[in-house]
Design a binder for these strands. Structure first.
Length: 351
RNA sequence: GCACAGGUGGCCGAGCGGUUAAUGGCAGCAGACUGUAAAUCUGCCGCUCCUUGGAGCUACGGAGGUUCGAAUCCUCCCCUGUGCA
């Protein structure tokens, strides 16, 4: 996949950097981990520090000193998760800032303006994420809204995408906008939504509305049922997943892109993902453990620090705990994807 | 030595006659976490038993006392802090 800020090998896992920062990890270490693309968030950056400020500073890449690719989420998920502070209308969403309670309005056009101002490589249509559980009527309604907004997002994005804050690009690639499939847990609605988005001809497609509380078999089923209705020659992105075994599984099913806060958030809470399974590094049993977090991991953390030390850091509430734990979890996720890519390459007779 | 103020579960600290194994916080132990309102949230946290829910025991500096009933009231003692000698 060729983006304005470089080529990205797929399937890829994208660390989440909501507020212009993958929490606890400086950009130069993200590069050392070989993260190829990260997420930024429209809603958060619009509120603080403000997309116009970022535009005037040369765009998000320059602002945060991240030379590689960035995908920005549209704010649709925040509208969903901030449900007590929002009001959805045909035209867009009225919501209150979680920071200071001030009122704001987001429309598909506005979301595109913000994402363009940020200068993202991949923008995402402003959607209405369907909650779980949702009855059919509710899913239908949210799907219709999402489709209407997808068309408006695309029209506005295409008309203004050249207004980005940077101009030189990698191999002439231009910013792209992905459509998002909704439809709740109803496979026929998913199919319909996919088909109608494909008619609009997006350069890539996201499957949204998953990992919102549904059982994981359902997540898998919806992905499996939706994927075949999206063109295989374009990037297919499942938003907000998952555990290490899940992302590997989905990648094998044909998903090209995934993002998830799990490795970063869990790390800050002391949960490490390893080849031996989940490790709650806060547990007393690690107090005396001189071994690396994951004996099978070659990351910069495992190469150098012990479980005992990591447990001490988080117990003592040292900020370094978050840094080291996050570095390891991201390394593990990125490694997982690297292995799946190798598998896929081996299996492909063409290459 | 005198005068005040105090001594509560590992620590800090509420409670000031019954509904109190005793509010909170910290520490401790465990769990959760999926397009980040998350360095967050939840549970347990005197001891011993039956593994829901309970049962018993021991507890508010010490010893007595008042009372149907005391961490809470009274007496004496011990200890700590501050002030004055």
């Amino acid at each position: 996949m060729t983006l304005p800020h470089g080529a990205v090998e797929t399937p890829v896992f994208m660390p989440v950097g909501t507020a212009a920062s993958v929490k606890a990890v400086p950009q130069h270490l993200l590069e050392a981990l070989d993260a190829q693309i990260i997420l930024g968030n429209t809603y958060h950056l619009y509120l603080r520090p403000g997309h116009e400020l970022i535009r005037s500073l040369g765009g998000l890449h320059r602002f945060m000193s991240w030379p590689r690719a960035i995908l920005t989420d549209s704010g649709g998920f925040q509208v969903f998760s901030l449900n007590e502070l929002r009001k959805v209308t045909q035209d867009g969403v009225q919501f209150r800032s979680h920071l200071d309670g001030s009122s704001h309005f987001f429309s598909p056009e506005h979301s595109m303006d913000v994402q363009i101002a940020l200068g993202s490589d991949i923008a995402v249509a402003f959607d209405e994420c369907t909650e779980y559980p949702a009855d059919r009527a509710r899913a239908r309604h949210s799907l219709d809204t999402t489709l209407r907004w997808a068309a408006r997002s695309k029209q506005h994005f295409d008309a203004h995408k050249h207004e980005r804050p940077w101009d030189s690009t990698f191999e002439g690639a231009t910013p792209s906008l992905f459509g998002i499939v909704q439809g709740g847990m109803y496979t026929d609605l998913r199919r319909e939504c996919a088909a109608r988005l494909v008619e609009m001809d997006f350069p890539g497609y996201a499957i949204g509305g998953l990992s919102v509380g549904e059982p994981r078999e359902l997540t898998r089923e919806i992905i499996a049922e939706t994927l075949p209705h999206l063109p295989a020659d374009k990037p297919r992105y499942v938003m907000g997943v998952g555990y290490p075994d899940e992302i590997a599984e989905y990648a094998r099913m044909g998903v090209d892109m995934m993002d998830c806060v799990l490795p970063t958030r869990a790390a800050r809470h002391g949960l490490l993902f390893t080849s031996e399974g989940r490790l709650n590094i806060k547990n007393k049993k690690f107090a005396n453990d001189q071994g690396p977090p994951d004996p099978a991991c070659g990351c910069m953390v495992c190469a150098r620090y012990s479980r005992a030390y990591l447990r001490h850091l988080i117990t003592a509430q040292e900020p370094l705990a978050a840094v080291l734990n996050t570095l390891h979890n991201l390394a593990f996720y990125l490694d997982t994807m690297r292995r799946v890519r190798a598998e896929i390459e081996d299996a492909s007779p063409a290459k």
